[in-house]
Design a protein around this nucleic acid. Structure first.
Lengths: 195, 195
DNA sequence: ACCGTAACACTAACAGTTAGTTTTCGAAAA
DNA sequence: TTTTCGAAAACTAACTGTTAGTGTTACGGT
């Protein structure tokens, strides 16, 4: 029985991790722009094409864990207590995510992102993808067949909250401030169509 | 007197326009990805480096007029009737912009944008820049020294409205729907701090 | 033991972008 | 007019991310 992933998949995962770790280390040591894909490949002892078979682009090397992020967002909606309203649950999770980004461990990475136009642009596209997933989760939670404009709007607003908070002097306060606005927007969007 | 721009600047502007027009024509004829910068340069009868001295990137060739767009947004705030509230003025302008994008003249360009990941990503960064300008205009309108988080949030929400409307089945209705939410968010953001 | 296939390597190229340098030519001083 | 200056554009030549094409290895199921 192959309950655990076989050696093949373990090796693949190991290669992937080695590439990602090496890349992040080099980026932080020498700067994102100063490190080429060829440098990463050489240091990780793999071929350039192998890097691109694991990651779609150079920027993707930095946002390796973004699926984690996405799942936390959607689970904040789908996995919340039955009696907890939607928006506060979302607020709590975004709070946690923002706090996580300001960790000493994660801060240098985000500083690097802020300093590189290419990475900033890529992060936006990642955020938009997350907003789409979130919109789908919200629609599902409401029993809608597919995301309405209101669902998508709230999801984008939440993504904006995250983005603005990261740039604010007091990130946590910014989350609260924007979420007061989102709460009002959500109520104005009309009744969640239940009962 | 050199009231009108001299021949030099006219030639420069002509070169710029020729490049942009040629590029857009080729992109629409053959598809964005199928046309290289070298093709554009050859067809416009300029050197490749000249293209990049006028436009920062290949994508920028498509969004040549984005400053126009930006000005219309900010002027909707700064140039509105003295008694008109902020959000409705913004709503009107976004309405007009969305309508403009669905014009027969502009539609093929936007279809091309929607089909190219690179262009979509670039458009997001343009939109974010516009949102920043808009936030600055809003802050200025309120007499604030610099954009608060609430200003920036409303500006982003407006940009989201534009983006969502473009993707919606009924763009104009989508603008109205999202702006009902924005209106509520704006009121929840607290009193505009005057009087 | 054997075969299919997924992972990876290698080569070579393409496309966007930039640096460095030189030529052209309009604009204003002389 | 002539000279001179500077910006615009050309040309060359590269660098970098990315991909296609083509083998080679070694795991996994038979």
């Amino acid at each position: 029985m192959t309950v655990q992933p076989g050696r093949r998949e373990r090796k693949k995962a190991a290669t992937r991790r080695k590439i990602a770790d090496t890349a992040l280390r080099l980026f932080l040591e020498r700067g994102y722009d100063a490190v080429g894909i060829r440098d990463v490949a050489a240091e990780a002892d793999v071929a350039v094409t192998t890097v691109f078979s694991h990651f779609a682009s150079k920027e993707a090397l930095v946002f390796e864990q973004d699926e984690n992020f996405e799942q936390r967002l959607t689970q904040a909606v789908t996995g919340r207590a039955p009696d907890e309203p939607l928006v506060p649950a979302l607020r709590r999770e975004i709070h946690a995510l923002v706090r996580h980004c300001t960790t000493d461990e994660a801060a240098p990475v985000w500083r690097m992102v802020d300093e590189s136009p290419a990475l900033r642009e890529y992060e936006q596209s990642v955020r938009l993808r997350h907003a789409e997933s979130l919109a789908a989760a919200i629609a599902d939670d409401l029993g809608l067949p597919r995301p309405t404009t209101a669902c998508r709007a709230i999801a984008r607003f939440a993504a904006d909250a995250y983005s603005l908070a990261r740039e604010a002097d007091d990130p946590e306060a910014a989350v609260d401030e924007v979420f007061r606005m989102i709460e009002a927007a959500w109520e104005a969007a009309g009744p969640p169509r239940r009962a």
